[in-house]
Amino acid sequence: MILLILFLFVALAFISLMFLDKQTYVIGGVIGFIGIILSVGLITANMANHFGMETKVTTHKSMMYSATNSKGYGVLLYQPVGTSGKENVYIYRKHEQDQKPTIVKPDLTMTTNRQEIAGNQAYRVIKDTRYVYKNDFWKLMFSIAGNDGELKKRQVTYQLPQNWIALTTQQAKNLQAKMTPKTDEEKAAVAQQQEALAELAQNDPDQAGIKQVQQIKATLNI
């Protein structure tokens, strides 16, 4: 719409200045120019400062599943981006039956964090802040720009209960090496532990998961 208005004002100014007589051309020209400046001003305000728009926050919460084949507990893998470690790439599975894990890389509009929660299910909470038009008038004016619902920023929170653990990909690798028993005594100890865990898992699976997570933390010293 704003483009049509701009076009009309340009046409008005052009026709007045080129084809009309002395008195009328001044009026037409002045109106035309004010119109051109106003419409270009509105376009600029919209493209630079999202004029006519407001921000709207939507939240979407979905379950997530362990990135590895862990039994009884969940693992959220992550890898820091750069050495400052402000942002991470996260790895998890969207559905329980997924063969391949989902990898989420951060970008300029996305920030992530982790949160501990109660319960036994892990969630991924997406909080989107989007630009939407304040009302139908501005929507009609600027809809051609196709910027309705443009993402301003996205905040992703990974909510982990006590039977989940977040590991860097490096830690996950170390863990495997450390957990593999080497001597016969170690093997026997592990077998004993497994038995105890299996028994606990039957009665209280959540508690069993928590116990495993604590074990991993102890092994990796985190």
Partner: peptide, 11 residues
């Protein structure tokens, strides 16, 4: 900064 914080660098 590219090594320290690639996202900040890109921005």
């Amino acid at each position: 900064l590219k090594i320290k914080d690639p996202l900040e660098y890109a921005q």
